[in-house]
């Protein structure tokens, strides 16, 4: 049986009005197929280069001659040293210095990870340093910037002689 014959056998049972009704149904079916439409979206991101921080100078208090009483030695960010009462201070002191490299024009925050550091002579003797920096934010003009760290060394009474060293760390982040 061909398709045409099949249609013929079905259609003989239908009146013309019925055929018209089928046509209307088919018409509705014809205008409600699956439709699709496309639109555009946009996405954006700003990428900054990784920050690098390198030490440009040590915080150095110089050579100190202690006294029988405790005192302090302060080194300002400018490198100027204030030698406490009773102490003798020699050699040229330097403040701590750091060089920051990042994306040009960006602002970074600067902070000390700890406000104090401990210096040790490798034996059982130590001194503490109070750290400070006036820089809390830095604009990376030309992709770089620098900041200084000041310190106040607490020298004990009759502090044992020796070479005292210690470490401190800073954090620099994009804002």
């Amino acid at each position: 049986m061909t398709v045409g014959m099949f249609w013929g056998k079905i259609m003989i049972l239908l009146s013309k009005k019925t055929i018209g009704a089928i046509g209307a149904i088919l018409a509705v079916a014809t205008v409600s197929p699956a439709y699709a439409a496309a639109g555009n979206g946009t996405a954006s991101v700003k990428i900054l280069r990784a920050i690098t921080v390198t030490k440009s100078s040590d915080l150095y208090f110089g050579k100190i001659l202690p006294s029988a009483s405790a005192s302090t030695v302060a080194v300002a960010e400018s490198g100027a040293r204030t030698c406490g009462s009773g102490l003798g201070c020699y050699d040229t002191a330097t403040s701590g210095g750091f060089h920051v490299v990042g994306t040009t024009g960006e602002v970074v925050s600067v902070s000390l990870d700890s406000a104090t550091a401990t210096l040790s002579d490798g034996a059982s003797h130590s001194m503490t340093v109070n750290l400070a920096t006036s820089t809390t934010a830095l604009t990376l003009t030309g992709g770089a910037g620098d900041f200084k760290v000041a310190g106040t060394l607490n020298v004990g009474a009759s502090q044992a002689d020796g070479t005292y060293t210690g470490q401190y760390s800073v954090s620099v982040n994009y804002q």
Binding site: V31, S32, Y35, A36, A37, A38, G39, N40, G41, T42, A43, S44, V45, K46, I47, L48, R49, A50, I51, G102, Y174
Partner: peptide, 22 residues
């Protein structure tokens, strides 16, 4: 017919903000 194709429009773009490489 209101059963025509749908349409889609962007009201706000996707912004991943700022990120630092590392």
């Amino acid at each position: 017919n209101p059963h025509g194709a749908p349409s889609v429009e962007m009201l706000r773009e996707i912004d991943f903000g700022t990120l630092a490489l590392g």
